[in-house]
Design a binder for these strands. Structure first.
Lengths: 147, 147
DNA sequence: TGATTACCGGATATATTTGTCCGGTATTTG
DNA sequence: CAAATACCGGACAAATATATCCGGTAATCA
């Protein structure tokens, strides 16, 4: 569904958000990678994308790390994360790969896929990182497999 | 959403199906690639997968080519094509990439994604190649961009 | 039977994604 | 100011997806 980069980006954002909401704790890369079960260096690249897009905040030096401001927790949606990493392609493009699939020249599945894609967009648009972080905080969601 | 290979595979199957239904015409690789706008050699690889999976029929030699039997037209679904090429991963795996995401240890988006994924599965399961081929035949769907 | 046709299958090439490494820079702390 | 910390950014490496090439094989037809 999403690229690995995007999966890591979402999980990392939620973890950072959870730690930020929970007494404003700033978290380092090592910690993030450990807690979401992702490759550290690759996760760093993904986070740089999110920082440049203004979706995550980073601070250098000792006591530095990543955090989400109160505003980011409240306003950044899953959709923004996905678009920043994977681009809008997957959320708009034709399921069968036609470059200009529309009502004018629809692919045979065009009208069947439309409602599903719309729901997916709506889903991503209506969930903030802060909300998802809360779920993890309450033990209602997990970012890694504990076995 | 789907891989390129899968997009080509679906479009090719529908085109073959349309030609098979329309007076049992058998079609060659060159023809297929031209009509759906795909790279010929790569499309051949994808079709081999579908032939091996029993979803498409091939005949060697002069007058040979690809075709869909009446039974294939009636019974082969989009889902079987997708699974044969991309595997079941995308239709079952966790949206956030957790290896064992379930009600026991759900990712924060687990319950939100479930209905969408279910609808997608249902969509693929309930559309046969024959049905989609009919749509193309009737000019209600296209497999390539005509500009 | 011999020539042609067209799919088959393996090897190879290219592009993209995924993942790593390491020096640079900003920041904190003693 | 000096040393340590931790993100930044570019180069590099590995894996996978995409795409091509070409000889092999089966089938048709003269």
């Amino acid at each position: 569904m999403f690229s690995k980069a995007c999966e890591y980006g979402i999980r990392a954002s939620i973890y950072i958000g959870q730690q930020s909401a929970d007494q404003g704790r700033r978290v380092g890369l090592r910690d993030i990678a450990t807690e979401i079960g992702s490759p550290e260096a690759f996760t760093a690249k993904v986070l740089q994308l999110l920082v440049r897009a203004g979706l995550v905040t980073s601070v250098k030096g000792p006591t530095g790390g990543f955090e989400l401001t109160a505003e980011q927790l409240r306003t950044v949606t899953l959709r923004e994360i996905v678009v920043a990493i994977d681009g809008g392609e997957m959320l708009q493009g034709c399921a069968l790969g036609l470059r200009q699939c529309s009502a004018r020249q629809p692919c045979p599945m065009h009208y069947q896929f439309l409602p599903i894609r719309d729901q997916l967009n709506e889903l991503l648009r209506t969930h903030t990182i802060g909300e998802l972080a809360g779920k993890v905080h309450d033990g209602l969601g997990f970012l890694k497999q504990f076995s």
